[in-house]
């Protein structure tokens, strides 16, 4: 059944208007990042567009260093989450042992504890471990995730039990089966979780703010805050170019994996 033309027009207009409204702040920032500061301050339309703001941002701030730090932190967290939650999900799906249900409840219970509520002792732990301004301090606390475990558990449950049994008959152990069969078979959901993990770690704010005091491991989000607060001239073009640089990696990731993420989120969360 095709829609009548009039209805189509209504829908497209609504779509375009709402897309513009939703995207406006980002779009304005994007345009501003190429604009002359004078034009911005006078509120006029851009007379000329240039990469000057980007050059300035990179010159005046260790943006590359921040980006690199963010990359390291996000990749390490993502890998850590993938390993830990796939191991845990494997145990919940393929292993039978006493206490499994209690431990499963423990995992559910972690969802009731917001990280923000335990941030004070966490800060002290990291400080006492001498992990302030260190990559481990930024990453290790986030390796274990209940959401990731549940998402993978849902997926592992769809692997037929017979695959495990066939491997038992030829004498394959659990760890090898996990490595050689479960991980490859569940590749897509691992990618989904990985994308989600990368996205959230890249965008982390409160914890990097607390656990970094200098530029050695400072992430780009905190770098952006520095840029914004230290930019004395209130040079909006530079600030916006910094912000655009910050969001480009995650936006690309989102555009590539939107379908996957959508499926993963609904699966892990609702079922």
């Amino acid at each position: 059944m095709t829609m009548p033309l009039s209805k189509k027009i209504v829908f497209y207009s609504l779509l375009i208007i709402s897309a513009l409204a939703v995207f406006a702040p980002a779009l304005m920032a994007f345009v501003m990042s190429f604009m002359d500061n004078k034009d911005i301050m006078t509120g006029s339309l851009p007379k000329s567009l240039s990469f000057d703001n980007y050059l300035k941002a990179f010159e005046q701030f260790p943006l590359l260093k921040y980006l690199f730090n963010s990359l390291i932190v996000s990749v390490v967290i993502t890998i850590g989450q993938l390993i830990l939650s796939s191991l845990a999900a494997y145990a919940f799906v393929f292993l039978e042992f006493k206490g499994r249900d209690i431990l499963f409840f423990l995992f559910i219970a972690t969802m009731m504890v917001p990280f923000e509520a335990s941030i004070i002792p966490n800060f002290h732990i990291i400080r006492d471990l001498n992990w302030i301004d260190q990559y481990p301090g930024l990453t290790v606390p986030f390796f274990a995730t209940a959401f990731g475990t549940f998402l993978l558990r849902q997926n592992f449950k769809q692997i037929p039990k017979e695959l495990r049994e066939a491997s038992q008959i030829v004498g394959m152990g659990d760890f090898k089966f996990y490595l050689k069969v479960v991980l490859p078979v569940a590749k897509t959901s691992l990618v989904t979780l990985g994308a989600y993990g990368f996205l959230t770690s890249w965008n982390m704010y409160l914890w990097p703010l607390l656990s970094t005091t200098n530029d050695t491991v400072r992430t780009v989000q905190i770098g952006l805050k520095q840029l914004q607060t230290q930019e004395q001239l209130n040079d909006w073009g530079v600030i916006m170019s910094g912000a655009i640089i910050v969001i480009i990696p995650t936006l690309i990731l989102l555009f590539l994996g939107q379908k996957q993420l959508q499926k993963g989120l609904t699966e892990g969360a609702i079922k």
């Binding site: 980002a26 916006m240 912000a243 995650t250 936006l251």
Partner: peptide
């Protein structure tokens, strides 16, 4: 429509600060 999910708190706040 889903794009704001990829925009970090810091960036979003800077956009709105303007």
């Amino acid at each position: 429509f889903s794009s704001t999910m990829g925009i970090s708190v810091a960036a979003a706040s800077v956009f709105w600060l303007y």
